Simulated scan of single mutants.
Amino acid sequence: MNFHPVRLGIISALREEQTGLIEIMQDVVTTTRGMRDYVSGRLWGIECVCVLSRIGKVAAAATTATLIEKFGVSHILFTGVAGAADSRLRVGDIVVARQLVQHDMNAEPLFPRYEIPLTGLSHFYSDQILSKQLLNAAEEFIRTDFHSAIADYDKQRFRLLQPLVYEGLIASGDEFIAHDEQLRKITDRLQDVLAVEMEGAAVAQVCFEFGIPFAIVRTISDSANEDSPVDFVQFLEKIAAHYAYSIVKRFIALHQSERALT
């Protein structure tokens, strides 16, 4: 069987979310475009381009389009953190997106609420094969790597017991959700939403329009309310960075063994 060459675009919103990946990349070439550094090279045998999108839907969409048009990526993976929108989720849990919606999109009465004008869609589905790989990678990380990857002090500090992995709906919007009232406005209408963040659905829309398979994984950093951890930067550095590194490594290893990114 013939397999198409893979060039994986890896996007994160913040520097801490890609800690370690660029440092071990081989044959590195850095290109600055649109105020972003696109770092090309090889990660565990795969051609990759790593980039920080910055925060928000416009930033994420611009970065995604550039990865596709200027750097010729064939698949896109987004890693980052999110707030929990479902009461079952705890800090340290992982959510792999099955589908994504822009919770602040409302072009009524011209189009139904949440529908992206001229697409006929409100929810964008991630690639099933990539998402299954990502789900397996996250589950294997929790089962095998979690206890050694995260220091005991940090487990206690952020009250991480035995994290769980979920798959489902993620909602994105240009608003940091930090209060119960904000969250209720979203979950009252989108009752199946698991997590809220600020980039994923924009990445999903661009990938849909360009026909690029994508997958998105989020580490739960807070409860999207007043009880959120105070030291967000420390969570990024001590927890989320280790999650992202290990999950990406296992995700790529699945390609190497199963040749599933085709």
Results as ranks from 00 to 15, higher is better:
residue 241 A to P: 09
residue 159 R to S: 15
residue 31 T to H: 03
residue 54 R to G: 14
residue 51 V to S: 08
residue 17 E to G: 08
residue 208 F to Y: 14
residue 23 E to V: 08
residue 190 L to I: 15
residue 31 T to A: 00
residue 34 G to V: 08
residue 18 Q to K: 06
residue 197 E to R: 05
residue 54 R to S: 12
residue 232 F to Q: 03
residue 132 K to D: 12
residue 90 R to T: 08
residue 10 I to P: 00
residue 89 L to F: 02
residue 225 N to A: 04
residue 47 E to R: 15
residue 238 K to A: 12
residue 149 A to H: 09
residue 154 D to A: 11
residue 149 A to P: 13
residue 63 T to E: 00
residue 168 G to E: 05
residue 155 K to P: 08
residue 259 R to L: 15
residue 38 Y to R: 02
residue 60 A to T: 15
residue 56 G to Y: 05
residue 156 Q to V: 09
residue 249 K to Q: 14
residue 7 R to K: 15
residue 121 L to F: 12
residue 236 L to F: 12
residue 233 V to Y: 03
residue 75 H to K: 05
residue 188 D to M: 05
residue 66 T to D: 01
residue 105 M to Q: 08
residue 10 I to H: 01
residue 107 A to M: 13
residue 93 D to C: 03
residue 20 G to P: 13
residue 200 G to M: 06
residue 144 T to L: 13
residue 180 D to Q: 02
residue 25 M to T: 13
residue 171 A to W: 02
residue 234 Q to W: 07
residue 184 R to A: 14
residue 203 V to N: 02
residue 162 Q to K: 14
residue 185 K to W: 02
residue 26 Q to A: 11
residue 255 H to G: 07
residue 199 E to P: 07
residue 190 L to E: 07
residue 173 G to K: 07
residue 13 A to P: 10
residue 159 R to M: 11
residue 97 A to D: 02
residue 130 L to T: 06
residue 247 I to H: 03
residue 234 Q to R: 15
residue 80 G to T: 01
residue 58 V to N: 11
residue 254 L to T: 11
residue 106 N to D: 15
residue 229 P to A: 06
residue 187 T to L: 05
residue 53 S to D: 12
residue 247 I to P: 01
residue 12 S to E: 10
residue 79 T to R: 05
residue 160 L to P: 10
residue 243 Y to I: 09
residue 81 V to H: 04
residue 79 T to M: 09
residue 69 E to V: 11
residue 3 F to Q: 13
residue 230 V to Y: 07
residue 156 Q to R: 14
residue 119 T to C: 12
residue 143 R to Y: 04
residue 232 F to T: 09
residue 12 S to C: 14
residue 204 A to I: 09
residue 190 L to D: 01
residue 35 M to V: 10
residue 49 V to F: 07
residue 34 G to R: 03
residue 147 H to K: 11
residue 106 N to F: 06
residue 255 H to Q: 15
residue 211 G to D: 00
residue 51 V to K: 04
residue 171 A to M: 09
residue 176 F to M: 12
residue 127 D to Q: 09
residue 250 R to K: 15
residue 232 F to H: 12
residue 216 I to E: 05
residue 231 D to T: 13
residue 55 I to H: 08
residue 75 H to N: 07
residue 194 L to W: 04
residue 254 L to F: 10
residue 158 F to S: 13
residue 129 I to T: 15
residue 48 C to P: 08
residue 181 E to A: 13
residue 192 D to K: 14
residue 256 Q to Y: 04
residue 149 A to D: 14
residue 11 I to A: 00
residue 48 C to Y: 00
residue 83 G to W: 01
residue 137 A to F: 01
residue 260 A to N: 14
residue 131 S to R: 05
residue 209 E to D: 08
residue 237 E to N: 15
residue 113 R to G: 05
residue 52 L to P: 00
residue 184 R to G: 03
residue 171 A to H: 05
residue 250 R to H: 12
residue 194 L to I: 12
residue 27 D to T: 10
residue 232 F to P: 03
